[in-house]
Structures are given as structure tokens and as C-alpha cells.
Lab assay of single mutants.
Amino acid sequence: HNLTITQGKLFFHYNPKLCLSEIHKMEEVSGTKGRQERNDIALKTNGDQASCENELLKFSYIRTSFDKILLRWEPYWPPDFRDLLGFMLFYKEAPYQNVTEFDGQDACGSNSWTVVDIDPPLRSNDPKSQNHPGWLMRGLKPWTQYAIFVKTLVTFSDERRTYGAKSDIIYVQTDATNPSVPLDPISVSNSSSQIILKWKPPSDPNGNITHYLVFWERQAEDSELFELDYCLKGLKLPSRTWSPPFESEDSQKHNQSEYEDSAGECCSCPKTDSQILKELEESSFRKTFEDYLHNVVFVPRKTSSGTGAEDPRPSRKRRSLGDVGNVTVAVPTVAAFPNTSSTSVPTSPEEHRPFEKVVNKESLVISGLRHFTGYRIELQACNQDTPEERCSVAAYVSARTMPEAKADDIVGPVTHEIFENNVVHLMWQEPKEPNGLIVLYEVSYRRYGDEELHLCVSRKHFALERGCRLRGLSPGNYSVRIRATSLAGNGSWTEPTYFYVTDYLDVPSNIA
């Protein structure tokens, strides 16, 4: 807008934040220059609390790290170098490059900038070799853009010569660093050979998330399962459950009422301010606690030095998902009996873990797994792929695949051998790939016309006998059925096997 004052003059007093240069501009645009008398524009009460600059400061050096910015700028000295009290560095987070010096300023003089007072450097006698002032900004957020400017702080001049310097606002972004852990990993099994893994992005990506790394490792069953005799009275049979499938998407929606109208769909109840505040506090606490764990609990591995020492970490090797089922080394339970199943799973520490690289999504279907087997899954978020990966501390989750139908069934015939004193040795093959492992066998036998009897055969007993022995049988026709019990439950009964026990007292003698 054009402003013209045809008559009258300007009068400025007691404006401590208004620089004289701005008042002189007002004289020019209003056409009143030359009308004012000496005392109409006070030299001592206008701009006496402001830094009124008329020179431009330029930054000469900028260096960044993930949490620091090192700045240096060209030296500046007023005509009387004693008038320079120091520099004021202003900075704040700036997602967009549209910041002005006066953003967030209120009537009390406060604003949204963080201000650092910096002492002037030592003055050199040689004007050509003056030290460049600077400042190291610490405690910054990774991968965050900051708006920065600097200006001088000078003393009051009796001659009211307006001098000083100020830089333009520059924008500097800190470097990326390792992201925080992925949030809320959930693993479920939808079949006997697959596990579905879902997660949420890290709360602090500290860069642009480029991919996720998912490692999985087959877990050995508890050692007590191999040692305890679950045929003993009072000892509860062990059981394991597989990871249940995901709930429906509708039930997972946030901010939804727990109660549904019987007449149909209901609208979600909005969260109160107290609920939102509580969630923010919980989120802040979780982030602080995660940072504490990362800094205190997890110790970084030592990389190899120039002395030739090897990095103890196993090298990563990509495998196809079809090879995942046989990740671990199978060892027989008892070496003397080769027909026992290889369900003991000690994992070799030198073995390469299978892994998958996930790009542009937060889910993965891990296939080719062994049925009813526990897996430990390790999830890392990465925001750099080359020249070397920059990934987060791992988040861990466990899951067990679903049982395989008929995996616990005894394959092959049940054979028998009759000894003296009416002892019958029953023999059968253990299931080759049971659900988890076989903890015991149930032997059901009966003599024709009598009630059915049951015998429990422990895992250890089966390994020693290759089956079991029935003792003290009365003469007669017998039928026997056997079924295995694994961590997933009972298998199917075998087809009945028949044998006849004679009275050993009636056996004919070869003595003449």
C-alpha cells in the first residue's frame, strides 16, 4: 500500500525493539523526510534493546553428524571492536523451508527459537588472519532439518551509529543413524509349514526405512522333555500350542467401542483428552525405555581390526524358502538304536541362519518350516543398504507352526516275539517326523474274553527296548493296539495285532 503524509511529521519514542533503520525507511515511504526535528525521533529510546544489523554474515563451514552440527561463519568486528559482546545463534526444527525470524513471537518477546549466546573469538592483530567464530550444536535429532541463523550482539553506541551483522536463515539436516526397533511384532501360524509375521514401523526411523531383515531359527525343545518319565503317576503330560491366527481386521481397528449394538453396526467412541494424553505418555515412556535398553543392555560386537582377528559373527547367506525346513542338525536320541526319531534339535552355532529381506511392506510369510516346531524370529529395521547396512537392534518374537495331521501315527506293522515265561516283546517304529517329539506310547492289549488293559511306555523305555515287553501273560489269544502321544496330543491307534500265548508248562520236552 502507498502511504503519503502531505502535512505533519513523524514522532517515535520509547520503541526499544524498533531499529532506527526501520524508522528511516518509514520517513522515505511516507514522504516526511526532512520535516522531523532532532528530538522527534529519539536516538536513545528507539532500538536500544534490539540488534540492528546492516551487514550480512556468511557461514564459512558446515559439518553434520547424526546428532551434531558444527558451524563456522566469517569474522565480524565493528569499528570499535570492544562493542562486540558476542553472537546469538538461533535454531529450531523446520520440516519445511518457510521459516521466518519472527515465527511464534508474542507480545512478551518470546519466540519459538532456541538461542545460544556465543563469546567472540580472540581478536588477531592481523586483519587478514582473524579467527572464524563458530559453535557445535549438540543433542539434535537424527535425520531432522533445522533452520539456523546467527547475528551479532553489540553494545549501545553513544554516537548512535547503527552497526551489526546478521546471516540469512539456512537449512541444515542432520545425518541418518540406526533406527529404533520395529514396533509390535506379531507372529502367527496359518499352516503346519508357515508363519505369518506382521509389525509396525519404528517410532524413530532416523532416516528413510529402506528394508527390513527377518531372521528365523528353529528352537530346540526343553531338555526336561527328553529326561522326564511322563508315565509316572502324578506327572502331567506336557503340551505345546501353536500360535493362533490373526483376529479379523475389524476387531483390530483402534479407537473402536468394545460393545456392539445388537441391531447392527455401531460407531466408534472418540477417545477423551485424558485417554489420548495417557497414550502419549505411555508411548514416550516406551521410547525412553527402549533407548535405555539399547544403550545399557546391548553391547556392540567388536569388529575385526587390522591384526587379522576374525569377526566372530557368522556370515549372512541367503537361502531359498524351500530350504528352511531342514535348518537344524538332527541327532538321534540314543545312538545305539537307529530307529528312534531325530527330534532332539541342538543347533550348531556355526550354522548360517536363513533370512529374508523385506522391502516396502511390514509383513512376511515364512514358508518351508517344520510342522509343530518353535521358531525364534528376529526382526531388524534398516535405513541404508549400501555401502553397508545400517540397521536397528533386533526385536524378537516366537511362534510355533501348526501340527501336521497323521504325523504322530505309527507307520509300519507292530511285530512281536514270544519268549519263555510268557513274555512277549512288542516292537514298532517311532514316527519319523512327529509333531514336536514323542513323549510316550500307549499300549492297549486284551486277552479274548477279558477286559482291555493299558500300559504306558516312556520315551526312554522305548529307546532301550525298541518297544516294550509284556510279562506274566496268561495263555490265550491276544490283540494289541499302540498309539503315540506327542507334544500336540495323541496320534491314531494302530491296526490290531494278534498273537497267541501258550502255557509254557505244557511245552513238550526233548528229553527222552
Results as ranks from 00 to 15, higher is better:
Y500E: 02
S458Y: 09
E351K: 14
P270A: 10
T386N: 08
E279I: 07
L473K: 01
L437E: 06
V329Q: 07
V397D: 03
Q384S: 13
K361Q: 07
F337N: 15
P332E: 15
T485A: 12
S474V: 11
E227M: 14
H294L: 08
E404L: 04
F499Y: 01
G476V: 01
N208C: 10
E247D: 06
E221S: 14
G476W: 00
Y396D: 01
E247Q: 13
E362A: 10
T502R: 10
E265P: 05
N208L: 07
P270L: 04
T343D: 05
L277C: 02
S363L: 08
S392L: 02
S284T: 12
P312H: 12
F419W: 15
R469Y: 10
S257D: 05
V327G: 08
Y375E: 00
E417Y: 03
I482L: 08
N326G: 01
T373D: 03
D385N: 07
T401P: 03
Q380H: 14
V327Y: 08
R313L: 05
C267L: 03
R319E: 14
F298Q: 15
N255H: 05
L505W: 04
F355L: 10
T272A: 10
E227K: 08
L440H: 13
V439A: 13
F462T: 03
C456L: 02
V324R: 11
P475K: 08
A407F: 10
K271T: 09
R376T: 10
N477T: 03
V414S: 01
V480N: 02
F419Y: 09
A399R: 06
P431E: 00
E495P: 10
S262G: 10
C266G: 15
C266W: 13
F289W: 12
F419C: 14
Y448W: 10
L487G: 02
D385G: 10
Q384F: 10
Y504A: 08
G489M: 09
A395Q: 14
T347L: 13
R471N: 10
T288Q: 11
L453N: 14
S320H: 12
K460I: 08
R481Q: 03
G449P: 10
E420R: 14
K287S: 06
L232K: 05
P403D: 06
S262H: 07
N295F: 10
K287H: 12
T497V: 09
E224T: 06
V439S: 07
R390E: 02
E389R: 14
Y504E: 15
D408N: 13
N208M: 07
Q256Y: 13
T386Y: 02
D261M: 14
D250P: 12
K287F: 14
C269D: 08
F226S: 07
L440Q: 15
I410T: 03
T210V: 12
R390P: 08
H461V: 10
E310H: 11
S474C: 09
E404G: 11
K287Y: 11
E465L: 12
W216N: 12
Q219K: 08
R481T: 07
E260N: 15
E265I: 07
S458E: 10
L453R: 02
G489F: 07
R316V: 06
Y292Q: 03
D204W: 15
R471F: 15
D385P: 05
A394I: 15
T347A: 12
G476Y: 00
L321H: 07
P245E: 09
K287N: 12
G489P: 02
P413M: 12
R301P: 14
S315F: 12
E290H: 15
S251W: 02
S348A: 14
V331P: 15
E282C: 10
V411R: 15
E217H: 14
K406I: 13
D503L: 05
L228M: 09
Y259R: 09
L426I: 01
D408H: 01
L379M: 08
S262E: 01
A335D: 14
P349L: 08
F289Q: 05
N421V: 10
G449Q: 12
A330D: 02
E495H: 15
Q252V: 10
T343K: 11
V214P: 00
Q219T: 11
L437W: 02
V397W: 05
R370T: 00
D323H: 13
P434C: 03
F355P: 05
F337H: 07
Q219N: 08
L232Q: 10
P338C: 09
N421W: 09
K302T: 12
S341Q: 15
T333D: 11
D503Q: 14
N208G: 11
A484P: 12
G412H: 05
E378T: 11
A330H: 14
S239A: 14
F226G: 06
F499R: 01
Y478V: 01
I410S: 07
P346L: 12
F337T: 13
S341L: 11
D229G: 12
D291P: 07
Q252A: 09
P314Y: 14
P403Y: 08
N435V: 00
S284H: 10
E452T: 05
E265W: 13
K317Q: 10
S262R: 13
P244W: 09
D222Q: 03
A394M: 11
Y445V: 06
R316Q: 04
P245A: 06
V411S: 14
T485C: 15
S243M: 13
N206Q: 03
A263R: 09
R313N: 05
S398H: 12
R400F: 12
G476I: 00
E351P: 11
Y441C: 02
E282T: 08
S243L: 10
E389W: 13
P349R: 14
P244G: 12
S444F: 12
G472Q: 04
S348W: 08
E389S: 10
F337A: 03
S363W: 10
P205A: 08
L228E: 15
K406D: 08
V345A: 07
K236Y: 15
P496M: 02
E465Q: 15
V345C: 07
Q252M: 03
E451P: 12
F372S: 07
A394D: 08
Q384M: 08
C456W: 00
A394F: 09
K317T: 09
G412S: 14
V324W: 07
G449H: 01
E247C: 08
S342C: 03
V443D: 01
N477Y: 09
Y441G: 00
P475F: 05
P434W: 01
Y396F: 14
Q256D: 13
R447T: 07
T303K: 10
S268K: 12
K278G: 08
E247H: 09
E227C: 10
R240K: 15
F215E: 03
Y478E: 00
V457F: 06
I418F: 10
L464T: 11
R483D: 00
Q384H: 07
E310S: 13
G234V: 11
G264E: 04
E442Q: 06
Q252L: 13
D273C: 04
W216H: 03
G436E: 02
L225C: 06
G449E: 11
S363E: 11
E433L: 02
D506M: 09
A263W: 02
T343C: 05
N490G: 15
E227Y: 05
S262Q: 07
A399V: 11
Y441K: 00
